[in-house]
Amino acid sequence: MSKNFTAKTSPKWILWSVITAVIVLIGVVIMAIFGVNNAVNTQSCQKLVVNVQMANTFYEEERDDIEDICEKAIADAGLEAIAVSYDDVSTSEHELVYSFRLDADLTDLKDALQAELREAYPDQDFATTMSYRQSVLEKLPGGNTAFLVRNVLAGAVMAVLAFAYVSLRYKLWNGITTFVSAVATAAIACSLVVLTRVVITASVMYGVLFAMLVSIALSVLFAHKAAEEERSGGALTDAEAVSEAVPVCETIKICGGVAAALLVIGVVGIFCAANFAWFALVAAFGLLAAAYSALLLAPSVFLALRKPFAKAAAEKARYDYKKGVKQPKKEEKKEETTEEAKAE
């Protein structure tokens, strides 16, 4: 991304704000219409528990055979289990827990399964039970609402604290840019998660907060570079100065490094634990949002804020500045014309 490009994109804060708002809005609309894609362990589902009690100790072959019978019966019933977990209750007792969607009709399957298992193992005890998860609302720790409200509040406090630190260390408009960038990153990341129908678990919150942290770090790098640029006092226009301060290399290095790590975690997830892959995808969305905020949104917001703030600061610096007294516009114009005339 060349400096020319950032010089061109920086003044377009309306465009980037609209794009951000549109992405977030689409996410909200999609969520309102279709809801979110809850994970197996966070959604309402039916569980078919096959409890197998052997007269003697279980052998691996028997266990595998029973699992095959169950899987065949499920396939014959035209159903698909969304998750399976196994549990050795004791050396002679084994439980298979199949999770199905709420609309699946398990009545026939249950009887068919029991009959097939009895036929294959006439001397053993089998029991199949069904249980229903009540509601997704209470699945997240502390209850869905409490979990979301408290953690969204944590994100908001995070943005405010970053704003306070950056404002104190650099300039107020740096602080505001950091705040806007962090909030936009979180909103875009959430929206992308909803739009792509990524499986929602409690871990999604970690991915979003992580994205905010990356965004805040990039904002500080931007503020630092902007301050350095200002100190150097070169003869650059505002847009050029801001484009010089955009932390392009830094963003590429930090986001690139983390993205490479996420890629590895995602690949490991594909082969080992599927939830790693989903989580890596969520974190990658967060990273993408943070990079977008750092490279496109933050510089444009910074530039838009810098003008009025710099003007106000210059006005305050005047020798005849009085608090609460504004200079009449006509006089300003007159002064400008006389200065121009003098210059000519």
Binding site: G142, N151, M205
Partner: peptide, 15 residues
């Protein structure tokens, strides 16, 4: 700034 931002996570619950 990251440490300060991380402190905000104390407001959150569970993980």
């Amino acid at each position: 700034v990251l440490a300060l931002a991380a402190l905000a996570m104390l407001v959150g619950i569970a993980g």
